[in-house]
Amino acid sequence: MSGVEILDNGTQVLTAPRATFGTDALLLGRFAQPRRAERALDLCSGCGIISLLWHDAGHRGFCTALELDPDASALCVQAVAENGIDHIAPVQGDLRTFCAAGPEQGRYDFAACNPPYFTAGPQSPDPVRAAARHTVTCTTEDVAQCARRALRDGGRFVLCQRPDQLVEVLCALRAARLEPKRLAFVRQRAGSTPWLFLVEAQKGRKPGLKLEPDILIESGAARYGK
């Protein structure tokens, strides 16, 4: 059964039991955003929460919302239609082959990805849930290489992940010519252990990483709606 969530400025997000969104998606969508007219790419878009959050915040450039699961992508299609949005294009497809060749390469100014988090451990018997949580169809390297192909030189890419994968993520970004520029840790409250990090990288730029202040959930960083 579908549900409806309303963002700060009235944009509707449609969800379903196997296509919801969490705090991490809200934090990612707010940590860095495309400028108003920039061409944007939302990788692992799910129900479209990040694309719709950008729209709610004022983004009006063309945006591709790429999602492997057809049911989740269909929710994004429905949400775009019901909100009367004409600049978000939901695409059901695999980021491992997206922008693999041709004119799509280097066309985007900004990209983001809320990827699967787990590389090991028990997996759900439901293949959709397993793909959403485990790196079965989407590794860190897959994500970084897709962003590299899609972004123009100087384009920005933002990603969230668990802290135990920080080294892997930074190495994968650099290997894809995506230089990490901003990094922030997410904590429930000051002094608690970080449970997430957010990183922004830029394609083809020189080294220089800025550590940002911690993002605290108890301060309201993930709240939304009227």
Rank of each mutant, 00 (worst) to 15 (best):
A65T: 08
A19V: 03
L52T: 12
V169A: 00
W195Q: 06
R182F: 04
R177C: 04
Y108I: 09
A120E: 15
G48S: 12
I215G: 02
A40K: 11
A172D: 02
D24R: 06
G220E: 04
Q105V: 13
S45P: 00
R148W: 12
F110C: 07
R148E: 09
I49T: 15
A81V: 14
A132F: 08
I217S: 05
Q33G: 09
I50D: 05
E141N: 08
G93Y: 10
E200I: 01
G208C: 06
P90Q: 13
A111C: 11
C146L: 08
S192N: 09
L211D: 00
L14V: 05
K210D: 01
E179N: 00
Q123W: 02
A40T: 11
N83P: 02
W195E: 08
T193I: 11
A201L: 03
C99E: 10
Q202T: 07
S124F: 04
N114T: 05
I6T: 14
A25D: 04
L14A: 08
G154C: 03
P90M: 14
R162G: 05
P194D: 05
L7R: 00
D109T: 11
Q78K: 15
I50V: 15
P17C: 01
R174Q: 06
D164L: 12
R133S: 06
R189D: 10
A81F: 14
G48I: 14
A131V: 07
L75K: 10
G155S: 07
D69N: 15
D153V: 09
A25P: 02
W54E: 06
A100C: 10
L173W: 03
L41P: 00
P125H: 04
F31K: 00
T64G: 00
K226S: 14
W54G: 05
R129A: 14
V158P: 00
G191I: 12
A221P: 04
R107V: 10
D69T: 10
E5I: 05
C44P: 07
P116G: 04
Q165A: 13
G155F: 01
Q161C: 03
D109L: 10
C146R: 01
D109N: 13
D142E: 02
P122V: 04
Q33P: 00
A100R: 13
G22M: 09
A120T: 13
R35P: 00
G48P: 07
F197I: 03
D214Y: 14
S2M: 13
C63S: 15
L14T: 08
F110W: 15
V143D: 07
R205S: 03
V143G: 02
A72K: 10
A176C: 05
Y108S: 09
H87N: 15
P90T: 13
A32F: 02
T15P: 04
A89E: 15
R107A: 15
R174I: 06
D214G: 11
K210A: 03
L178T: 00
